[in-house]
C-alpha cells in the first residue's frame, strides 16, 4: 500500500451527504470507525475507493469523501477485483452485508479470497435482510423466525470465518459495532495487510433484528464472552483477565488461571502470522458460549497477492518479448507482402 506522509483527519474521508441509516443503526458507528481507520493509515482520499453491493450497509460509499461505487447486489467483490487490477495504486475497500456478500455474492466472495486480490472486505453481519424489511439471511441461526421463515428456518447458517478459511484466506478479523476502538484498529490492520482482508463486523439492526448480538454485546457479560486477540499477547479474557485459553489435545479450552494446576505459562500466545490456519480456525469458530467469541485480528499472513502477480507477469513477459505495439507484434508472425 502507498503510504502518504501527509496526515489526514477522519473528516477528510467524509462528505457532506446526509447519512440516511436508521437512528441507532450499528452502521453509524462502523462508518465513524472507518473514517478514523483511514486517517490512521494515511492513504489520501483520492487514492482510496470504496465499492459496495446492495443493502443497507452498501449505501456507505455515498458517505465517503473518497472515490466510491454503489453497484449491484452481490457483485461488489467482482467489481472491486477489476478495479484493483486496473488501477493498482488505489487502496480498495469493499462493503457488503451478510446477504450481499454471502448469499447472492457468495461465489465472488470466496473467489476473491482464494485469489488474494488486495482489497479490504468489510462484512457487516446483522443476520438479517434489512433493506427488504426482515427476511432471514445466510448467517441467521437455525430456527430463526422472520417474515420469510414464519415457522423458523430449517437450514444451518454460514459462519463467515469458516468460509474464509475454506477459501484459503490469509486475513480474517472480527469486531463488534459498539466497540469503536477495536473496529478502528481491526480496519487499519486490514488496510495494512496485502492481499484480501476480511473483517466481519457484528452489527445490530435496530428495526428488524434488534439485539441479535446482545448475548455477546451485553455490557455485564461481554468481558467473559469475548476475547480480544492481539498478536504476541497471551490469550486472556474476563473482567479481571482471570481466564485464559490453553491447549487441550488438538483443541483449545478455557481455564481459570491459577486453578486446576494451570498457570499463566500454560496460556497460549496469539500468533496471527503463522502460516498454518489450524489454530486460527479454532479461534475463529469460538462462539461465546463454551468458549469466548474472538475479536481482533485472528489471522494475518503474507502470501502472493493476485494483482501484484498479474503485474509482475505482464512486466516479465513484456521484458522478454519487447513488442512496442500491436503492429510490431503482428509483423513478428506469419505475413506476406502484396506489392
Amino acid at each position: 500500500m502507498e503510504q502518504n506522509t501527509q496526515q489526514y483527519a477522519p473528516s477528510d474521508f467524509k462528505n457532506q451527504s446526509p447519512v440516511r441509516w436508521c437512528p441507532g443503526c450499528g452502521d453509524h458507528a462502523i462508518l465513524n470507525s472507518l473514517h478514523k481507520a483511514m486517517a490512521a493509515v494515511g492513504v489520501a482520499p483520492h487514492k482510496t475507493a470504496v465499492i459496495s453491493g446492495i443493502g443497507c450497509s452498501s449505501r456507505l460509499p455515498y458517505y465517503m469523501g473518497t472515490y466510491g461505487f454503489h453497484t449491484i447486489h452481490g457483485r461488489a467483490a467482482a467489481i472491486a477485483t477489476g478495479f484493483k487490477l486496473a488501477n493498482p495504486q488505489m487502496t480498495v475497500w469493499q462493503i457488503s452485508g451478510d446477504g450481499d456478500g454471502l448469499a447472492i455474492g457468495g461465489n465472488h466472495f470466496i473467489h476473491a479470497v482464494r485469489r488474494n486480490i488486495d482489497i479490504n472486505i468489510m462484512l457487516l453481519n446483522n443476520k438479517i435482510y434489512g433493506l427488504t424489511k426482515g427476511q432471514y439471511s445466510p448467517t441467521s441461526d437455525r430456527g430463526f423466525v422472520s417474515k420469510s421463515s414464519p415457522y423458523g428456518t430449517t437450514e444451518d447458517p454460514f459462519i463467515p470465518a469458516e468460509l474464509v478459511f475454506g477459501a484459503r484466506g490469509n486475513f480474517f478479523a472480527r469486531a463488534i459495532d459498539v466497540e469503536l476502538e477495536v473496529t478502528r484498529s481491526v480496519l487499519a490492520a486490514a488496510a495494512r495487510h496485502k492481499g484480501t482482508s476480511v473483517c466481519e463486523i457484528l452489527q445490530n439492526c435496530v428495526i428488524y433484528n434488534n439485539g441479535i448480538h446482545s448475548y455477546i454485546t451485553d455490557k455485564e457479560q461481554r468481558a467473559n464472552r469475548t476475547i480480544h486477540l492481539v498478536h504476541g499477547e497471551k490469550m486472556l479474557f474476563g473482567t479481571e483477565k482471570q481466564f485464559g485459553l490453553v491447549r487441550d489435545g488438538f483443541l483449545v479450552k478455557a481455564v481459570t488461571v491459577g486453578q486446576d494446576g494451570y498457570t499463566i505459562d500454560d496460556v497460549l500466545v496469539h500468533d496471527a502470522h503463522t502460516p498454518s490456519n489450524f489454530l486460527h480456525q479454532q479461534l475463529a469458530m469460538m462462539d461465546g458460549h463454551d468458549l469466548p467469541l474472538a475479536i481482533g485480528v485472528i489471522r494475518d499472513v503474507d502470501a502472493p497477492v493476485y494483482n501484484e502477480e498479474v503485474d509482475n507477469q505482464v512486466a516479465t513477459v513484456r521484458a522478454a518479448k519487447g513488442f512496442d505495439n500491436l503492429r510490431s507484434m503482428i509483423l513478428a508472425g506469419e505475413t506476406w507482402e502484396v506489392k
Binding site: I51, I79, T81, G82, F83, A86
Partner: peptide, 9 residues
C-alpha cells in the same frame, strides 16, 4: 463486473 470495476478505474 470485473470489467465494470476496471472501467470505473
Amino acid at each position: 463486473c470485473s470489467a465494470i470495476g476496471a472501467s470505473y478505474a
